[in-house]
C-alpha cells in the first residue's frame, strides 16, 4: 500500500516536472543548434543528434548587422522593473498599513472601498488602459522613455503591493503596534521599528509579485514604446521576422527568464508564512 502510493506519487511528480521543465530543455537544446539542425526534423540530444553550435549565444553579444543587442533591452527592463517595483513596494506598504490600522471615511467611501479601488485596477482588462496611458504619456512627453514606462508600471504594480500587504498586515496583531506606542514609539516609529521588521516575509512576497508582473509585461512595453526604448519581452518578439533565428531566440528567452528564476530560488524560504507566527500568545 505504502509502496504503491510512493511509486504513484513519484511517477506523478516526474510527469509533472517533465511537463514544466520541458519547454526550458527544448529552448536550451535549440539555443545550441544551427539553422540546419533546427529545420531538419525533431532532434534534441546534442552531439548525438546534432552538432552543437554557439552561434545563437554569440549573436546576443555581438553588435552590428549580424548581432542582436540584448544588453540594452536587458538593462532597460531591469531599470524599469526594479524602479517601479521599489516605488510600488514603498508606497503600497504605506498605503496598506494605513488601510489596515486606521479607519478612513469620505461620504460612503470606507476602507474596504478604497481597497477594492486599488484591486479593481487589476481586474480591468489592460487593453482598456492602453489608450488613456498612451494619451497621457504623450501629453507629458514620456512616450517611448524609461520614465514613462516606470510611471505606468507603478500604476500596475501598486495594486499588487497594496493587496498583498493589506492581507499581511491584517495577520499582524494590532496589539503589537499598541505595545510599541506604549513603549514610547510614535505611530510612525511603531511602523518602522516594530511592524516593518516583522513584515519581511510579506515584503518579499509582494516584491516578488511586483518583479514578476513588471518583468513579464509585454503589452504596455509594446504599446507605449516605438524604437528608442525597448524592453526584453518586446526585444524577443521583434526577433520573430521572416526568417526566425530560433537559436538566438532560445538563448535570449533563457537569459530573460534567469533573473526571475534566481529571485524565486533566493526567496523561496520566505514564501511560507511560518516565520511570522509567535508575536502574540
Amino acid at each position: 500500500m505504502n509502496r504503491t502510493y510512493l511509486i504513484v506519487k513519484y511517477l506523478f511528480l516526474l510527469a509533472w516536472s517533465t511537463f514544466v521543465v520541458f519547454p526550458f530543455l527544448w529552448a536550451l537544446s535549440t539555443s545550441f543548434k544551427d539553422a540546419n539542425a533546427v529545420t531538419s526534423g525533431a532532434r534534441y540530444i546534442p552531439w548525438l543528434e546534432f552538432e552543437p553550435s554557439t552561434q545563437g549565444w554569440k549573436s546576443l553579444f555581438t553588435s552590428g548587422s549580424q548581432g542582436i543587442n540584448i544588453v540594452t533591452p536587458f538593462l532597460n527592463s531591469a531599470t524599469v522593473t526594479l524602479t517601479a517595483s521599489a516605488i510600488s513596494l514603498v508606497l503600497g506598504t504605506l498605503a496598506a498599513y494605513g488601510l489596515s490600522r486606521y479607519q478612513f471615511r469620505a461620504g460612503f467611501v470606507k476602507n474596504s472601498d478604497i481597497t477594492f479601488f486599488f484591486i479593481s485596477q487589476r481586474i480591468m482588462p489592460p487593453i482598456v488602459l492602453a489608450i488613456p496611458f498612451f494619451l497621457m504619456l504623450r501629453e507629458i512627453g514620456a512616450l517611448d522613455t524609461i520614465l514613462g514606462l516606470v510611471i505606468v508600471y507603478i500604476a500596475l504594480l501598486l495594486p499588487i503591493a497594496v493587496w498583498v500587504m493589506i492581507d499581511f498586515f491584517g495577520s499582524i496583531p494590532k496589539e503589537l503596534d499598541e505595545m510599541a506606542m506604549i513603549d514610547g514609539c510614535t505611530p510612525a516609529g511603531a511602523f518602522l521599528r516594530v511592524i516593518l521588521p516583522n513584515s519581511l516575509a510579506g515584503l518579499v512576497v509582494a516584491g516578488m509579485f511586483c518583479l514578476i508582473f513588471g518583468w513579464n509585461d509585454f503589452f504596455f512595453a509594446f504599446t507605449l514604446t516605438f524604437t528608442k526604448t525597448q524592453l526584453l519581452p518586446v526585444a524577443i518578439v521583434s526577433l520573430n521576422s521572416s526568417v526566425t533565428p530560433w537559436w538566438s531566440l532560445s538563448a535570449f528567452a533563457l537569459i530573460s527568464v534567469t533573473p526571475l528564476a534566481l529571485v524565486a530560488i533566493l526567496v523561496e524560504r520566505f514564501m511560507s508564512r511560518g516565520s511570522l507566527s509567535g508575536a502574540i500568545r
Binding site: E175, L176, V194, P197, N198, L276, G278, A279, I280, R281
Partner: peptide, 12 residues
Amino acid sequence: AQVFQFPVIYTT
C-alpha cells in the same frame, strides 16, 4: 507601561 492579557513580544 501596560501589559496585555496575552504576551506581546517583538519577535524579531
